[in-house]
């Protein structure tokens, strides 16, 4: 996986938080995902297809997700229900779509969001390394997982 493909997703995440949450997440060093895999409480997942195949996920502990979405919609969201899932899915959609602008050469299409709520690990495409980018933020920590196969 070409690391140059990761930067647009990082920039898109920062732009999303700035514009929609008025927050400035700080990116940690990207790492190749290895066992034991990190566990999350809620993840928004977007499938990528076209000139490359894979997925991009935004992954949260519950406290971070609730704080982030509450800030985004401007009212307190206190439970892990449909409102939370919808918002996390839309954040993933915004990040994936915005990153495409800097990846126009790949001619990517993005899927509708899928959201997982419950303590889970994510698995990427088999045979393709997944890169994890950790973020710290005033709204709580979260991570991005990217798995992208370019031919």
């Amino acid at each position: 996986m070409n690391v140059a493909y990761i930067n647009p997703f990082i920039a898109a995440t920062v732009a999303c938080y700035k514009n929609m949450m008025d927050a400035e997440p700080t990116q940690g060093a990207p790492v190749i995902k290895r066992e034991p895999f990190p566990k999350y409480d809620i993840s928004g997942i977007i499938g990528l297809s076209g000139g490359a195949q894979g997925s991009i996920s935004l992954c949260y502990p519950m406290q971070s997700a609730l704080a982030t979405v509450s800030k985004m919609v401007g009212v307190p969201i206190t439970e892990a229900g449909v409102d939370l899932a919808d918002a996390i899915g839309e954040i993933a959609n915004i990040v994936a779509g915005f990153a495409k602008r800097d990846l126009a050469g790949l001619n990517l299409s993005i899927s509708l969001p899928n959201v997982i709520i419950s303590n889970h690990v994510l698995s990427g495409l088999s045979g393709v390394p997944t890169v994890i980018v950790p973020f710290t933020c005033s709204l709580g920590p979260f991570a991005m997982e990217i798995s992208l196969k370019t031919s």
């Binding site: 929609m20 985004m72 919609v73 401007g74 918002a87 899915g89 839309e90």
Partner: peptide
């Protein structure tokens, strides 16, 4: 918009 959250944000703004 298929996202209720997005419509909520747009509605407010």
């Amino acid at each position: 918009d298929d996202s209720v959250t997005m419509r909520r944000i747009q509605k407010t703004q």
